[in-house]
């Protein structure tokens, strides 16, 4: 902020700088995804454990069966949303430059969308193709 900003009203100085009211939603969504991820992570670990050392066809048959596929999809969706929120917090804590922060947040969003969509696509392809 330069001295020129002193010509502006206090509200204009803070508007669009990450206002209040969004923090509660962020924290609450973190809790919701955390709660979902406790059983989902345990189920994910169990599924992966059953696939250790198994061949291509066995892995596909397991991951493509309805229950493991649905568990994997739930785990992946909850995970990518959870990690989008988490990395956003890390970026907001450590990246202070306005440009660097905006780009980092954008990259975070794109990464989580891309990884999430790739994994979901893979599970669906294994299930239906």
């Amino acid at each position: 902020m330069s001295n020129a900003s002193h010509m502006r009203t206090p509200i204009a100085e803070v508007r669009h700088l990450g206002s209040a009211r969004s923090g509660t939603k962020h924290a609450w969504h973190m809790r919701i995804t955390s709660a979902a991820l406790v059983p989902l992570t345990l189920a994910f670990v169990w599924i992966v454990l059953t696939l250790v050392g198994k061949d291509y066809n066995t892995v596909r048959a397991t991951l493509g069966a309805p229950l493991p596929a649905i568990i994997m999809l739930l785990f992946l969706l909850a995970s990518v949303y959870h990690m989008k929120l988490g990395m956003q917090t890390i970026i907001e804590d450590y990246v202070h430059g306005e440009h660097a922060k905006t780009w980092s947040l954008l990259c975070n969003l794109f990464f989580c969308f891309a990884v999430g969509l790739a994994c979901v696509y893979a599970i669906l392809r294994i299930s239906f193709v």
Binding site: Y56, N57, V59, R60, L63, S79, V80, M83, G86, M87, I90, V115, A118, C119, Y121, A122, I123, R125, I126, V129
Partner: peptide
């Protein structure tokens, strides 16, 4: 560990996509 798991999803994505692609 949160940040490491974030990066680790690439490994999971690779494994799942490989299983979705071919033998």
């Amino acid at each position: 560990t949160g940040a490491a798991l974030y990066a680790g999803t690439l490994l999971l994505a690779w494994w799942l996509l490989a299983a979705a692609t071919d033998a």
